[in-house]
């Protein structure tokens, strides 16, 4: 059974004006799944709808079989779905440590172990634990945002464009971290504009356009598909050898 199962999801920012028209995706444990597609395809909206931040007007979201569609956002978190938004994903007025503590808001007990685990996973954060998050670099903030979401031991981790604005070396590092997290059993679902790099780091992918499913398949299949390459990956099949 998939860890996360979304079926026929209809959602939007304004009631009666859905942006997502019946999207279905699945993510299994230890899997990394990426949503790609043009701007305005509703990819971020899908994540926000799962997280409970926008109104869901149809369809279902199931977490290990449990229907979580109608839960308010704060209960979605305690159910086991963590979300890293694209922007505004850390509290700049709080310190690194406070950000992590707030992330663990729904957890009672074992806070100390979780903090130490977060610092072990993301060592730059340990050095800056009492500094305001505002003083962190872009890459460090992203780390903090992910660490914050991990504080609740989520079964599913959703990330909205986790590599936006990051240097290529840092992008690689982020994807490496995500692979490591998936290995520990988490189901990872992300939206990425950086489609090629994301697919290379993922197991499977879905292409969404205009709020609907278009193509789905393993990451390899999508990278090989000429139509997908044409539209979303810069017009060249990535698995082809470079000329010359």
């Amino acid at each position: 059974m998939s860890r996360l199962e979304v079926s026929e999801l209809v959602a939007g920012y304004i009631r009666g004006l859905p942006v997502v028209h019946g999207v279905s995706i699945e993510v299994a444990r230890r899997e990394i799944v990426t949503l790609i597609g043009p701007n305005g395809a509703g990819k971020s909206t899908v994540l926000k709808a799962i997280a409970g931040l926008v109104s869901r007007e149809g369809g279902h979201v199931r977490l290990a079989g449990r229907d979580v569609t109608a839960l308010p956002a704060h209960e979605v978190v305690s159910a086991g779905i963590g979300f890293v938004p694209q922007t505004g994903n850390v509290f700049t007025t709080l310190t690194v440590q406070e950000n992590l503590k707030v992330g663990a808001h729904v957890i009672r007990g074992s806070l100390h172990e979780r903090l130490e685990r977060a610092y072990a996973l993301f060592s730059p954060l340990a050095a800056r634990r009492h500094l305001r998050a505002r003083t962190l670099s872009g890459g460090e903030r992203q780390m903090l945002a992910i660490a914050r979401a991990l504080m609740t031991d989520p079964a599913v981790l959703m990330l909205d464009e986790p590599t936006a604005g990051l240097a290529p070396r840092v992008v690689d590092e982020v994807f490496r971290q995500l692979r490591g997290l998936a290995e520990t059993g988490i189901a990872v679902l992300m939206v990425e504009q950086n489609a090629k790099a994301a697919l290379r780091a993922s197991d499977r992918g879905y292409v969404l356009t205009e709020g609907r499913n278009r193509v789905a398949g393993s990451a390899r299949e999508l990278l090989d598909d000429p139509a997908v390459a044409e539209a979303f990956l810069g017009g060249r099949r990535l698995s082809a050898r470079p000329a010359g």
Binding site: G52, L53, P72, H74, E75, V77, F91, L94, H105
Partner: peptide, 21 residues
């Protein structure tokens, strides 16, 4: 208290941390 400070900065992010608005 920390939840209040979090909400003051970003209600959306606070919700995603499990804080009940």
């Amino acid at each position: 208290g920390m939840a209040m400070r979090a909400m003051a900065e970003s209600p959306a992010l606070a919700q995603v941390c499990g804080i009940e608005v």
